[in-house]
Design a binder for these strands. Sequence first.
DNA 1: GTCAAAATTTGAACCGATCCAACGAAAGTG
DNA 2: CACTTTCGTTGGATCGGTTCAAATTTTGAC
Lengths: 359, 359
Amino acid sequence: MAPLSSAKTRPVRLADIAKAAGVSHGTASNVFARPDIVREEVRERVKAAAEAMGYGGPDPKGRLLRAGKVNAIGVATAEPLSYFFDDPFARVMMASISQACDATGAGISLVSAANNEQLAWNIQSALVDGFIVFCVDGGSRLVELARERKLPFVALDLDSDDDDAVAAIGVDNIAGASLAARHLTELGHRRFAVLTLPCADAGFGPTTREQVEMALYSATRDRLRGYFAELSRVGVDVSRVPIYETVNDEKSVWAGLDHIFAGAETPTAILAMSDRMALHALDWLRQHDIAVPGDVSVVGFDGVPEGAISKPPLTTIVQPIAEMGRLAVKAILENDGSFSRQSLPVQLVVRASSGPSPA
Amino acid sequence: MAPLSSAKTRPVRLADIAKAAGVSHGTASNVFARPDIVREEVRERVKAAAEAMGYGGPDPKGRLLRAGKVNAIGVATAEPLSYFFDDPFARVMMASISQACDATGAGISLVSAANNEQLAWNIQSALVDGFIVFCVDGGSRLVELARERKLPFVALDLDSDDDDAVAAIGVDNIAGASLAARHLTELGHRRFAVLTLPCADAGFGPTTREQVEMALYSATRDRLRGYFAELSRVGVDVSRVPIYETVNDEKSVWAGLDHIFAGAETPTAILAMSDRMALHALDWLRQHDIAVPGDVSVVGFDGVPEGAISKPPLTTIVQPIAEMGRLAVKAILENDGSFSRQSLPVQLVVRASSGPSPA
DNA sequence: GTCAAAATTTGAACCGATCCAACGAAAGTG
DNA sequence: CACTTTCGTTGGATCGGTTCAAATTTTGAC
C-alpha cells in the first residue's frame, strides 16, 4: 500500500514535481528556495506534489554547481582518517577548528587516506571551499597537492624555510624548543636524550642530527635546532646527545627508551617533541621504576589537555592551539588572497614532570 | 611576471583549456579522467594548456552532478561540532567509523549545528551519500530530518520502541544496565543513586522515574529500566533511589553528587549512564575523600578507553563501539534498502571502581 | 592501392538545480 | 477606459563537468 519499496529508484527531480504540479521548474524551485514569492495556492500544490512523489527537497548536488560555494572546509592530513580522533594534538586542534566552523555555519570535511595515490584523488575531489592542512609527516606533499587544487588553503605548522607563497599558521618551534631546553639546563641537567617526530618516510630508530636536518617536516628540524642551540649554549656536547626517531606512538617511544637507557650514560632529562611521546615516555619510566622527576625529567611539546592530568603532570611547551584553529578557519573563509604566514608565540608551562637534576 | 595575482578570479574551466588546446571538451575531459585513451601528443598539449592557464584539474562540483555519488558519508549530531572531538564516546565511535571509511576510501563530513534551524539546513544541504546519526539528545528530530532527505541513513543507538522503519544499530541498553546493577547487587549493595543522561530538552537536576520514562532519548529510558528491573528483583525500593539528570558534563555531574550526598541516606553505589559521567563522579568522590570502591562503588556505561586508566580504573558496561562503527558505515555504503535494526551485545568489564558494599 | 578494423576525436545530451530577463495578469491611477 | 505598477510565473541560459553514439583518422592486411 504505502510507497515503502521506493528505496532503490529515486529519479525524482525538481522538474518532475514541477510537471506534476503543473508549474514551471522555475516556480518549483522558488517554492523551496524563496517560498515567500510564490502564491500560497501554488506553493501548497507544489509541496503536495513533492510529498506525494517522495521528493526529498532540492538536491544539494544541483544547487552546488550553480552556487559555487560548498560551505565546508576540508581538513587534510597524510595520516589515516582516524588520526583526527586518536591523536591528542589533532583532537584539540580539531575541536578549536570545529568551534570556529560552528560559529560561521561552515561544515567540516575530513580528507585523508592510507596510501598516497588515494590521498591525491581525495584532495582533488574533495567538495570543499578550502583546505586546512595538517603538516605532520608528509606535509610538503600534502601542501603540493592542496596547492594544485587552486583553492585557498592554510598549512598548520609549516616549514619555516619553505616556499613563502603558501599561507601558514604555526608557532616558533625554535624558540619553543629552546625554552624547553633552557628550563632543563637551568635545573642543572646536562645529560639529555631527544625523542623526535618522524623524519624519514617511515620507521623508527636511533638517528643523527644530520638526518634530522633533512627531515621532511620542518617542525622536527626546528625543534631540534632549538634544543641544541640551548644545550650548546651551556656547553653540552650535542654530538653525544642520543636522538631517537619515533613515529609518535607508544611502541616506537618505548623502543626508543629501551635503546636510550641501554646506553652507558643514561640521560637525566628527556626532550620530547610532542606531548604524546612525552606521555608514553612517562608510562615507560613508571614501568621501569625510574622516578620522574627524581631520576629523570621529561618535557613535552604541544600542550594537550592530557598533559595536565598525567602522572606526573607534564611540563611542556604549549601552543596556542585554539587560536591557531580559529585563525586557520578565518583564513579560509575570509580568504582575500592577501593572507600569508603567521607565527604564534608558545609558552613554557612547568608542571611536575621536570625537576632538578639528580646529583 | 609570474601569474601569481590570479587568486581573485578563477573562471578557468575545462572548456577554456579545451579551446586553448584546440580540442573538444570531450577530449579535454578524457585527458584527466581516462588519460590512456587519448593520444600522447594531444594529452601533452592539453596538459600544457592546463598548466599555462592555471587550471586546477576538473572541478569536483561539476563531476559530482553527473556521477551522482559524493563518496562521503555524513555524520550528524545535534550537538555542536566539537562534540565529535570532545566527547570520549563520540571520539571512539568516530575513530572506528573513520577506520571503516578509510578502508573503503570514503570521506567523512561532519554535520551539526548549534541551533535547530541551522541544523535542518545543514542536513538538507550536506553533500553526502548517506548519514550516520548520533542519537544522543535530540535524536528523534535528527532522525526525522535525516529521513526527509531520502538518503540512506543509520541511527546509532536508537530507540527500542521507535519507528521500525528506520535503520539503527545499537546495544541492548536494558540488558546492559541490568548487568551493571546486578554486578553491584551481587557485591551486596542496596543503597543506590543513578546519574542519567539528559531527558528533557535542557538543564539538569533531580528527576524522577516518570520523567525519565518520557525521555527524548530512549537509551536513557532503557538504561533506567534495566537498572530498576534488577534492583527491584533483589528487593530494593526503587521509588527511593535518587535519580539525577545531568547534561553529561563535569558541572552537572558534580552538582548531582552534591545533591545526592547531601541527602540523609547516602548511596554506596552509583550507576552512571555514561563513562563520562562516571569519570567525573570519580573525580568528585576523590576530591571529597570518599573512597572508591571502599565507601562507594561506581559503574559506568560505554567502555571508553579513558575508563581503563582512570583512578581507579572504571568498572563499566562496554559497548562494541568499533563493531558498531563498522556496521554503520557498511550499512550506508552497501545500502541495499534491506538493512534494518541491529542490536549488539554488551559486556560487563569489572575494574577497580566497584567493590563489596561497606558494612 | 583498397578496404575493413582499430584507435581517436567530436559534439550533443545530460546531471539537478538556480537565476534572471521577459511576460501575462491583476491591481491601481487619472 | 487607457496606462502604469505590482505581483507571479515562465522558460531559457548557466554552473562544470562526464558520457556515449557517431564521425573521423590511423593502422594493418592483402
